[in-house]
């Protein structure tokens, strides 16, 4: 017979990593299902946190349910370790868990990111957690969430393809930038969060686990290691990344990395690599890991995803 004495856990003054045991256990259960069904959006009970929804609560909840005292956490926002949002999230995670932090991608075990995947290649022991503002790739063509869920269930993505085709007819190119839809394991169409198109191929057959979580929308999904993640593309109109050919980083002199464009007063622009941790290592002449795009841009063949 179940009694309160049995069911009530031992009292501790506070919950480790902020979330209570029930919340963490629920998130962990959902995460296992998300790993088992790549790209499928698993609903979960998104909890209140001391930051507002829309500021990374989904990613933060996943990080808090994964983090332990031996973890090394890196938090980035649009590639930057030092933005206000990233600094606050990092400070909160450390205060609540006692984990270590780093800006070095190669040393981190958990990487929480908003809108970027780091330039350096991640390995099997690392987990990438992406903050997601809008997890539903069908939102633009079907605003009713229940109907969108039915469409996912039936793998009914005809309207999605039609949207891409209409863009081609109207503009002679696919106009989608960030959040470029991808097909995961040949089944579910997924929004990879608003990462630039440059980062999308980094998810294909990646050796690391990616967990994507939307706190406001109360849904999380995952891309397990070594999983096919293919951007939607037509046979005769291949997927292309942003054209940053001939852009040079004014801080490191490098190219073939994703750049921020900094407008100048005269109408010109200079460029800097978006991944600030990578830039700092280059400036300090510290060793860097392999990058997804080498100096000869070998990841791509003329900007086209190449296996």
């Amino acid at each position: 017979m179940q009694t309160l004495d049995i069911l009530v856990p031992e009292t501790s003054g506070y919950s480790y990593a902020f979330l209570d045991e029930f919340a963490k256990r629920e998130l962990r259960r959902r995460m296992l299902k998300a790993i088992a069904i790549p790209g499928y959006q698993v609903p979960y009970a998104s909890r209140e946190l001391p930051i507002a929804r829309g500021w990374g609560t989904g990613g933060l909840q996943v990080t808090l349910s994964l983090v332990g005292p031996s973890d090394v956490v890196k938090v980035i926002d649009q590639g930057a370790d030092d933005s206000v949002n990233a600094a606050n999230l990092r400070r909160f995670i450390v205060r609540m868990s006692g984990a270590q932090t780093t800006t070095d991608t190669t040393l981190a075990t958990l990487i929480q990111s908003r809108h970027r995947i780091p330039e350096e290649v991640l390995h099997e022991q690392q987990t990438l957690i992406l903050q997601v503002p809008d997890p539903e790739p069908l939102r633009a063509i079907e605003s009713n969430i229940s109907k969108a869920r039915e469409m996912h269930g039936d793998a009914d993505y005809g309207l999605m393809w039609l949207t891409l085709y209409e863009q081609l007819v109207r503009y002679k190119r696919v106009t989608l930038g960030a959040s470029y839809p991808v097909t995961v394991h040949g089944r579910y169409v997924m929004s990879p969060s608003p990462i630039p198109r440059w980062d999308v191929p980094k998810l294909h057959q990646a050796p690391f686990l990616t967990v994507l979580s939307a706190g406001r929308e109360k849904r999380l999904y995952a891309v397990p290691p070594y999983t096919d993640v293919r951007p939607l593309e037509f046979d005769d109109v291949p997927f292309r990344v942003e054209n940053q050919r001939n852009w040079l980083c004014f801080r490191t002199g490098e190219h073939n990395k994703f750049m921020n464009e900094i407008p100048l007063a005269g109408g010109n622009a200079i460029y800097e690599i978006s991944d600030s941790g990578y830039v700092n290592k280059r400036i300090l002449k510290q060793p860097v890991g392999n990058t997804f795009f080498d100096d000869n841009a070998k990841f791509y063949k003329e900007g086209v995803l190449h296996d």
Binding site: E10, K24, R28, L66, G68, P69, S97, L209, P224
Partner: peptide, 21 residues
């Protein structure tokens, strides 16, 4: 921050299950 024994054990078990899957 310190973990309770229960939290530490459940976290460790979950991490193994996550890697296994």
């Amino acid at each position: 921050p310190t973990r309770s024994k229960l939290e530490a054990e459940t976290h460790e078990t979950f991490e193994v299950l996550r890697r296994a899957l």
